[in-house]
Design a binder for these strands. Structure first.
Ligand SMILES: [Mn+2]
Ligand SMILES: [Mn+2]
Ligand SMILES: [Mn+2]
Ligand SMILES: [Mn+2]
Lengths: 215, 215
DNA sequence: TTTTATTTTTAGATTTGTCTAAATTTAATT
DNA sequence: AATTAAATTTAGACAAATCTAAAAATAAAA
């Protein structure tokens, strides 16, 4: 599998979590910053290799084989992110790009040894679960902060949006994975929340609450 | 710079340590397991990018720019090898292939943080010196075991040949970097050596002694 | 110094991944 | 149901990196 093929497979994997009935050509093109016609070409290639099932105009889904490959790439991506943050001291907004390259390094032994070295982490620095060597993903129980009842306490466990902008906003507000959050009040008009994070009062917009997972 | 260009630059670097006046097309092709005609094409490309100076039929040399790039690739290769052996527990004969891929990961910050994480090692698992962030290589004093006087004691500090076969032979004989070696006797006929390694008597061929550096 | 052998380069083709522009299919609107 | 709009695919082209086969240049041998 080439790097390009791997990038396609991973994008299809992520998109099919949202649209399991079939992923659109255009959606793939958007994620990979390429053109729809290039996607069509690649779908034929991946279909020939039995990594996706593809019928003209009908969108694509991953085959068993493609699904497993995708999880192995995601596994590598997330383990490398843990390495970069835990061992090398990168911050969580700096690691995605580098992991985007590291995820294509080809040794299975490497990734299993890295997993062990990191202590078999369950989640990456953004709270996303790490598939094990067999591809099994332990689902992490979590809710969006925007959907949680008032006056109960939770822990931050993940982010939905892991863009630099959002992560840096969280850093600024001293919100990190593990922080204790309690919703004090919710504004009816625009769903703005008054929260207490690690004991400190804060007002956050619905957009923020909509991208923060708690448990 | 593409991965392919980087591989060419690195090979030219290694070959020019032996033939500083100019590296042959055929030699490059041999190292990269490709054809001479492909090398010619690439030399034009690298020349256009001012990474090598190239004149038809005359061989190539690295420019300042190419020389620096080469050292940065070698730096990455060797640091990753240290990581694989010291942190992940690979043996020294398993790491070259993987480092061959890791050396192309593009972040300068990554490699400098990795360097710090590893404690700024001076040499890789095969005893080869690691260029620092500026490209400076501290030369390691060393002699081939085949050229050393009899009855003096040395430490193993490196290997000239780092093929799996040779490294596995050394493992079998319990010869590692750091081992203490003393040449007891040298056979006139074929230069076979009788040595004492960490106190243990051993007979080794000239070919072995010719690929083991001591200090 | 010719002749022969070796090395290197050119010419032309192939594969991979991409693009633009045009054609086709499907979906959405009148 | 007919028309318009959007999504998708085809056709044809291009750059990167490679190859084979033939031509040219250099080195070695007679
Ligand atoms: Mn990637
Ligand atoms: Mn992540
Ligand atoms: Mn390489
Ligand atoms: Mn090495």
């Amino acid at each position: 599998m080439t790097i390009s093929e791997e990038n396609y497979i991973k994008v299809i994997y992520h998109l099919s979590l949202v649209s399991p009935k079939g992923v659109n050509t255009n959606a793939i093109a958007g994620m990979l910053d390429t053109k729809a016609s290039s996607v069509t070409d690649m779908m034929k290639k991946l279909s020939d290799k039995d990594l996706v099932s593809y019928q003209k105009y009908q969108g694509v889904t991953l085959t068993e084989k493609g699904f497993h490959s995708a999880k192995m790439i995601v596994r590598k991506h997330r383990l490398w992110e843990v390495f970069l943050v835990d061992k090398l001291g990168f911050s969580w907004d700096e690691v995605h790009e580098i992991a985007e390259e590291l995820e294509h390094i080809k040794s299975e032994q490497l990734i299993n040894k890295l997993d062990a070295f990191l202590g078999f982490p369950a989640a990456d620095p953004h709270g996303d679960p790490i598939p094990d060597a067999k591809g099994v993903i332990k689902k992490i129980e979590k809710q969006l902060l925007s959907e949680v009842e008032i006056n109960a306490s939770f822990h931050c466990v993940g982010v939905k949006d892991s863009s630099t902008d959002f992560l840096k906003y969280l850093d600024k507000q001293k919100i990190a994975l593990g922080s204790v959050v309690k919703v004090i009040d919710k504004e009816d008009f625009d769903d703005t929340l008054t929260v207490e994070i690690d004991g400190k009062r804060l007002t956050i917009s619905n957009k923020i609450a909509n991208n923060l997972y708690v448990q």
